[in-house]
Design a protein around this nucleic acid. Structure first.
Lengths: 106, 106
DNA sequence: AATTTATTTAAGTAATTACTTATATACTTT
DNA sequence: AAAGTATATAAGTAATTACTTAAATAAATT
């Protein structure tokens, strides 16, 4: 959990997760979306991977990264539960989420 | 959101939130539960307060702190939604949460 | 009014984190 | 096998963060 919160405490890393939410991308694809150098992005990717939030797979010359959504949702929901065990807003929020998912045919 | 994730990326600060989940406590009460100096704890408290996660109220000589649970749940649930819009595990988790809340008579 | 108690602010330092450029590794193409 | 492309590792530096002790502020007690 420590590593997950550490990983999330960075805007570029949260941005990377957002990119990976919709598609699998290569390290280069991701780096191209940032101003900073490729090694800097590579370091962010390994922070995210060490936190268990993403997974890398080498295919040929490329390294593809994809999101592991369960890791994120489990840690964050688990944490909310721990700190706010009687959270009315969460209840409302989870209802809203369930509604959205029903709409999107899930 | 930036500030919330920043605030959560620290074990002592998450520990403070856990203490405040169950009771309102004075700055001194909180500091007494840590090894570090009172000013260090005071700084952690202001990081949490600037993130909107807790609120302070001065009563006489003491400053009492309490949790603002909505801030936490809204940010974390909102974020999970953003990054994992079709998260089956979240759905399962939110079901489990709802169950628990029903049990505890909420 | 002087002293004690609770807390914060200030100022400085040590530790950590986020970058940079340069170099190494490993595939792919010629 | 030589050259080019994709990525990571290494090494160093700048910026940030997490502490420390000392001093300031404010309320309570004597």
């Amino acid at each position: 959990m420590e590593r997950v919160f550490q990983a999330l405490a960075s805007t570029p890393r949260r941005k990377i997760l957002a990119y990976l939410a919709h598609a699998e991308l290569s390290a280069g694809d991701i780096a191209a979306r940032f101003e900073m150098s490729k090694p800097a992005v590579s370091q962010h990717l390994s922070v995210l991977e060490n936190a268990g939030l993403i997974k890398s797979e080498k295919r040929g010359q490329f390294v593809f990264y994809r999101l592991l959504p369960d890791a994120l949702t489990n840690v964050l929901n688990g944490y909310v539960q721990e700190v706010c065990p009687v959270s009315r807003p969460l209840k409302a929020e989870s209802r809203a989420i369930a509604d959205k998912q029903r709409q999107s045919g899930d």
